[in-house]
Design a protein around this nucleic acid. Structure first.
Length: 423
RNA sequence: GGAGAGGUGGCCGAGUGGUUGAAGGCACCAGUCUUGAAAACUGGCAAGCGCGCGAGCGUUUCGAGGGUUCGAAUCCCUCUCUCUCCUCCA
């Protein structure tokens, strides 16, 4: 969401900003609607001022037992005009918001040009894909051979894009969640949160999933939505709040299930665990002062990378190009992990700085220690990491020729000392 | 699912039609006092929007939206959210 006053002050900059999102100029139209709103509001306010004066006079006169018919007539005569002005102002305001809330965030200056993920810029790589010395298998072949990953039985009860993990693989998913949460809470300064997985529409509006992306969500008959990411409940902790500056930054982490209908992704990654309707993710959310969000962004991507370093999984970090940038983000780094079975890097984390875009939508503000007034906070979110995909990465990179999976060192304490997963 | 009670400022909490933007308290800021701090005392302290170059002026806001009235936090209606009890349930 954007500040209409900022658009008024520099319409060209706004249009140039959304042009990078391939959107046509719209500032002029917005300013025209806003002008209508303000003009009507001014008229309504002037009429109200007069009405307030008259009311006081009427009150005084009646108190003294005097006649106030003239004043009362003037008030009733102005009513229609005032109501009309108020109606015009409200309609224009609604119209303005309806447009503004569908415009994506303006990209940061250093977001690279580009159409799609092929144009993302690689910033760095870490680790070297191991030469296994045999032909690597994909995770679903490994998992099914182990008898611990069952798509067919899951489909029987839930349909496509679900999986049943069992035995050591199920335990490894749990181990990964625990490992990640422990890292973020004990070393990275995040507070662990166990939030609701069902949220109201306004929470999704606040983070930007609604109103444009309802098709990607699962909606309950009762009106609640299943969260597509813990970003929604974690960021909404500050919704509607006005907090003191010295309580920032806030850093939250949570392990939750995420639910996505992925309506637009039919045909992609139909096999395996890469793209599921339900998956586990450890999420990080930070809320900062505006001047701190860029540094927080770098910090957060580092927190996510640390997970992969400790798991000794090769990865690379890319900066998303304009065409690949999400709705609410002004800048996003993705981490792509090496998948030996696929022989390529695949997204395992996405870390975004949303600036004040979400904060405006959810009215999350802070009161500066010095100076007057209030400011909107900045919000950031990032996966740390997608647990299911991390499991996939471990299986493919740690696989042995006999189909067994070596358990990464750091996970062994979480798995009762288990060193290798075998059929 | 059934019954009831409520939504007031950053927080708590008074307030049933006429200087109530709203008592009081907490928090916060400034000052007095103090070697310093605490305590005590004094004063200050809402947000949004509009108009104005500006000091500033105006307007709105007591969950949301309608209504009654010259005038509504206060009365009426609808909606929404929260809480309590019963029922049910992990």
């Amino acid at each position: 969401m954007f500040d209409i006053r900022a658009i008024r002050e520099d319409a060209a900059a706004f249009d140039a900003g959304i042009a990078r999102r391939k959107l046509d100029p719209i500032a002029e139209q917005l300013i025209e609607i806003d002008k209508r709103r303000r003009d009507a509001q001014t008229v309504a306010q002037e009429l109200q001022t007069r009405r307030n004066e008259l009311s006081k006079i009427i009150g005084m006169k009646k108190g003294k037992g005097e006649d106030a018919d003239a004043e009362m007539k003037e008030v009733s005569d102005s009513k229609d005009a005032q109501a009309a002005a108020e109606e015009t102002a409200k309609a224009a305001g609604d119209e303005l918001e309806a447009i503004l809330c569908t415009i994506p965030n303006i990209p940061a200056e250093d977001v690279p040009e580009g159409e799609d993920e092929d144009d993302n810029i690689e910033l760095r790589t870490w680790g070297e894909p191991k030469d296994l010395g045999f032909e690597a298998k994909e995770h679903f072949d490994l998992g099914e051979a182990l008898g611990q990953m069952d798509f067919e039985t899951a489909a029987k009860m839930s349909g496509a894009r679900f999986v049943i993990l069992s035995g050591a693989l199920a335990r490894m998913e749990r181990a990964l969640s625990g490992f990640m949460l422990d890292l973020h809470t004990t070393e990275n300064g995040f507070t662990e949160v166990n939030p609701p997985a069902l949220v109201r529409d306004h929470a999704l509006y606040g983070t930007g999933q609604l109103p444009k992306f309802e098709a990607d969500l699962f909606k309950m008959e009762e009106g609640l939505y299943l969260i597509p990411t813990a970003e929604v409940p974690l960021t909404n902790i500050l919704a509607g709040e006005l907090v003191d500056e010295d309580t920032l930054p806030r850093r939250y982490t949570a392990m939750t299930w995420c639910f996505r209908s992925e309506a637009g992704s039919a045909g992609k990654d139909t096999r395996g665990m890469i793209r599921q309707h339900q998956f586990t993710k450890v999420e990080m959310v930070a809320v900062t002062k505006p001047e701190d969000s860029d540094a927080e962004h770098e910090r957060m991507i580092g927190c996510a990378e640390e997970v992969l370093k400790r798991l000794e999984l090769p990865y690379r970090v890319v900066s998303l190009c304009l065409g690949d940038l999400g709705f609410s983000a002004k800048k996003t780094y993705d981490i792509e992990v090496w998948l030996a079975g696929q022989g390529r890097f695949r997204e395992i984390s996405s870390v975004s700085n949303c600036g004040d875009f979400q904060a405006r939508r959810m009215k999350a503000r802070y009161r500066p220690s010095e100076g007057k007034g209030t400011n909107h906070v900045h919000t950031l979110n990032g996966s740390g990491l997608a647990v299911g995909r991390t499991l996939v990465a471990i299986m493919e990179n740690y696989q042995q020729e006999d189909g067994s999976i070596v358990v990464p060192e750091v996970l062994r304490p979480y798995m009762g000392g288990l060193e290798k997963i075998e059929a």
